[in-house]
C-alpha cells in the first residue's frame, strides 16, 4: 500500500515535485538572510539531505535498517581528503573518488551482510561501521588519526570560486538535484520494484524467482555510493575529514532524521528530516548544550504519534485547521505522501 507512493514502478517522474523542491532551495538563501542565519546552514542541509536520500534507498525502499551508514559517508570524505594529500584534486576527480569510495566500502560491507535481515543486518552494519571508524582513528599516517585531515581545498570547477558561500551553495544544490533525480529513477525502475518487494516480503520475493541477496547488495552499493558522494561534499564543506564523520553517532543521526522526515512512506521525506535535524541542532544548541535532549523529545513525540514522520504531523495539523478537504495538490510530494498511513507488514 505504502509502496505505491514511494516506488510504484515505472511511474512518471513527478516533475512538479522536483521543480518545487528546486524552487524552495533556490530561494532558501534569501529566507536565511532574512532570518539572519548563516547560509552555511543551508549548504549543510543539502549535503545531509543527500546523505539521507541515499540512506533511504535502504531504509525506505528496501526496508533494511543499516546502523553503520556513516562508514560510507566518511569513506567519501576521506577519499577526497586523502586524494588531496597526494596532490590529486579537481572537482570531478574529488566527486568521482568520493562516489567510488562509498561504493567500494558498501560493496565490502554488503558482501558480508547481504544475506542477513532485521536485527542481524542492523547489528552487523553497526559493527562494520565502527571498524571503519577505528581504522580512521588509528591509521595516523593515512588518515591523520584523531585530528583527521584538515586544510583541504575546494576546487574551482568552471572557474567558480567555491569558497564563496553562495556559489558553493548553488553548486551543491546542482549536484543534489541531479543525485536526487538519479535516486528517484533507480528506486522507480524495475530494480527498485524488486527492492520494494523485498521490503514487503523478502521470502515471497525469493519464491518469485528473484535472488534477493543480490538485489540487497545492489541496494547497499547504490546507497553507499551516493552516501560517499555526500561525504565528499561534506569534506569540501568542512575543508576537512574527521573520524567523527564515520562514528556510529553519525549513523544514528541519519536513521533518526530519515524517520523524522517520514522516509518510510515518502520519497522526499528525508529532505525535510535533514532540514529539521540540522536546523534544530543549530538553533536549539545556541540556547542550551542539552539540545539532544530536546531533539530527542521531538523525535519521540513525532514517531510515537505520527509513525510516518513530520509530513504526516504537518498534514494532520493542516487538516485540523482546514476542514478535511484533502487537497492532493499539496505543495510538496512529501506532504502528499503523508496522509497515506497504510502499514505494510
Amino acid at each position: 500500500m505504502t509502496r505505491e507512493t514511494v516506488s510504484g514502478s515505472h511511474r512518471k517522474p513527478p516533475v512538479a515535485a522536483f521543480l518545487s523542491l528546486l524552487g524552495v532551495f533556490a530561494v532558501l538563501p534569501l529566507a536565511l538572510r532574512g532570518l539572519d542565519i548563516s547560509l552555511t546552514l543551508g549548504t549543510e542541509v543539502l549535503i545531509i539531505a543527500l546523505f539521507a536520500m541515499s540512506y533511504n534507498i535502504l531504509l525506505g525502499t528496501t526496508g533494511l535498517a543499516s546502523f553503520g551508514h556513516a562508514a560510507f559517508f566518511g569513506s567519501g570524505a576521506y577519499a577526497v581528503a586523502i586524494a588531496q594529500q597526494y596532490g590529486l584534486g579537481g572537482a570531478a576527480i574529488d566527486l568521482v573518488l568520493a562516489f567510488l569510495a562509498g561504493l567500494v566500502a558498501a560493496l565490502l560491507v554488503g558482501l558480508l551482510v547481504m544475506k542477513k535481515r532485521g536485527i542481524y543486518f542492523g547489528l552487523l552494519t553497526l559493527a562494520f561501521g565502527q571498524m571503519f571508524y577505528i581504522v580512521a582513528l588509528r591509521w595516523d599516517d593515512l588518515t591523520g588519526g584523531e585530528t583527521g585531515l584538515t586544510g583541504l581545498k575546494r576546487p574551482a570547477p568552471f572557474g567558480l570560486d567555491l569558497n564563496d558561500h553562495i556559489t558553493f551553495y548553488y553548486f551543491v544544490l546542482a549536484i543534489f538535484m541531479v543525485a536526487v533525480w538519479v535516486i528517484w529513477r533507480i528506486t522507480h525502475s524495475p530494480f527498485g520494484s524488486v527492492l520494494a518487494a523485498i521490503k514487503s516480503n523478502e521470502v515471497r520475493t525469493q519464491y518469485l524467482g528473484y535472488h534477493t541477496a543480490r538485489y540487497k547488495l545492489g541496494a547497499i552499493v547504490v546507497s553507499g555510493a551516493f552516501s560517499g558522494l555526500a561525504g565528499g561534499l561534506y569534506a569540501w564543506f568542512q575543508y576537512a575529514a574527521y573520524p567523527q564523520n564515520l562514528f556510529w553517532i553519525e549513523s544514528g543521526n541519519i536513521v533518526i532524521l530519515t524517520l523524522l522526515g517520514g522516509g518510510l512512506s515518502s520519497f522526499f521525506g528525508p529532505i525535510l528530516g535533514a532540514a529539521v535535524f540540522v536546523g534544530a541542532q543549530d538553533l536549539i544548541s545556541s540556547y542550551t548544550e542539552h539540545w539532544m535532549f530536546f531533539f530527542g523529545l521531538i523525535f519521540i513525540l513525532v514517531v510515537t504519534a505520527f509513525p510516518n514522520g513530520l509530513p504526516e504531523a504537518l498534514a494532520r495539523l493542516l487538516s485540523l485547521v482546514r476542514r478535511p478537504t484533502r487537497t492532493t495538490d499539496a505543495s510538496t510530494a512529501a506532504v502528499r505522501a503523508a496522509p497515506n498511513r497504510g502499514t505494510t507488514p
Binding site: 539572519d36 548563516s38 552555511t40 546552514l41 576537512a240 574527521y242 567523527q244 564523520n245 543549530d282
Partner: peptide, 16 residues
Amino acid sequence: GTPAQATRKATQMLER
C-alpha cells in the same frame, strides 16, 4: 563538541 561542530559554530559566530 567535535571539530566539525566547532568550525560550524565558529563560522556562525564570525558571520552573525
